[in-house]
C-alpha cells in the first residue's frame, strides 16, 4: 500500500486556483499502484506529467519509483506549478516544475525519451468557447473544462504522445465515458500505432471514470506487458 501524498501544506486558498485532488485523481493513483511492479521493471528515467496541478500524482509515482527517475511536471497555471514544487518538497520527491502548455518546450529534446507520461486532463464536456477561455486564463476552470465531448484539450496531447514515448514508454490517461473511450483507443492505434488497454474503470457519483494505458506494440514492450499480467 503506497500512501496518498501529504497535501496538508495546501490550503483552501490554493484550491481556489489549483484543482484539488478528487475521484479522478484517485483512480489514476489506484491504476498506478496496481501497475507498480510493472513500472519498476521498466525502470523509467524520465517521467512527465502534463497539467500536474497539486503535484499529487507525480509525488505518488515518485513514492513508487524513488530517486531513479527525473520527474518533470508541466502546467500552464503558475500557481499550480508552485503547488507542484511545494508538494514535492513536502513529500521529499524532487519534482521539476515547468510553466508550459503540454510538453511544448520539451518536444525537441524528449523525442522518444519519455518512459512514463501522465495526463489527467480537463475532460468535462462544456461549450467549446468555455474550454478555450479556461485554457487561456490558465486558472482553476482549465483543470476541468474540456469543450465539446470533453476532448478539446486531450486531443491536442494525443497528437504528441507517439513523438514523446520511449520504446518501452507508457502513457496513462484519465477519461470519462462521454469522451468515448473505445474511439480514443481506436484512433490512437489507427493514427499512431499505439496499443492500449483500460487499466481501471469505476463510477464515482455522476462520473464514469476510466484510466487508459497506451504503449508501443513493439516486442520489448510486449515482454514488459506480459510480465505485468
Amino acid at each position: 500500500m503506497i500512501p496518498t501524498p501529504d497535501l496538508s501544506h495546501l490550503s483552501h486558498k490554493d484550491y481556489e486556483h489549483v484543482y484539488e485532488p478528487a475521484e479522478d485523481t484517485f483512480i489514476l493513483l489506484d491504476a498506478l499502484e496496481e501497475d507498480a511492479d510493472c513500472l519498476k521493471q521498466v525502470q523509467p528515467r524520465i517521467c512527465l506529467e502534463i497539467g500536474s496541478g497539486s503535484g499529487c500524482v507525480s509525488c505518488f509515482v515518485g513514492a513508487i519509483l524513488g530517486h531513479t527517475s527525473l520527474y518533470l511536471c508541466t502546467d500552464i497555471n503558475p500557481h499550480a506549478a508552485r503547488c507542484t514544487v511545494a508538494t514535492g518538497v513536502r513529500n521529499q520527491i524532487r519534482l521539476d516544475a515547468i510553466i508550459a502548455p503540454f510538453a511544448h518546450p520539451l518536444l525537441d529534446r524528449l523525442k522518444g525519451s519519455v518512459d512514463l507520461l501522465l495526463f489527467n486532463p480537463p475532460y468535462v464536456p462544456t461549450v467549446e468557447e468555455e474550454a478555450a477561455n479556461a485554457q487561456h486564463h490558465a486558472d482553476i476552470a482549465g483543470a476541468w473544462a474540456g469543450g465539446e465531448d470533453g476532448m478539446q484539450v486531450t486531443n491536442e496531447l494525443l497528437g504528441l504522445v507517439e513523438h514523446l514515448l520511449s520504446p518501452t514508454g507508457q502513457f496513462y490517461l484519465v477519461a470519462v465515458k462521454q469522451n468515448d473511450v473505445p474511439s480514443i483507443q481506436r484512433r490512437m492505434f489507427d493514427e499512431h500505432g499505439l496499443r492500449s488497454e483500460v487499466v481501471l474503470e469505476r463510477r464515482a457519483g455522476v462520473e464514469h471514470l476510466f484510466v487508459i494505458k497506451f504503449f508501443r506494440g513493439c516486442p520489448p514492450t510486449k515482454q514488459v506487458i506480459e510480465f505485468c499480467h
Binding site: 518533470l72 518546450p105 525537441d108 529534446r109
Partner: peptide, 23 residues
C-alpha cells in the same frame, strides 16, 4: 528549481524558431 538536468531538455518553442534554439 531549474536544475541543469531540466535546462538540458528545454528549447525555445516560439513559432518559426526552429534552428539554433537550444540551449
Amino acid at each position: 528549481m531549474v536544475r541543469l538536468i531540466t535546462h538540458n531538455l528545454l528549447a525555445c518553442h516560439v513559432k518559426g524558431c526552429n534552428t539554433n534554439n537550444f540551449p
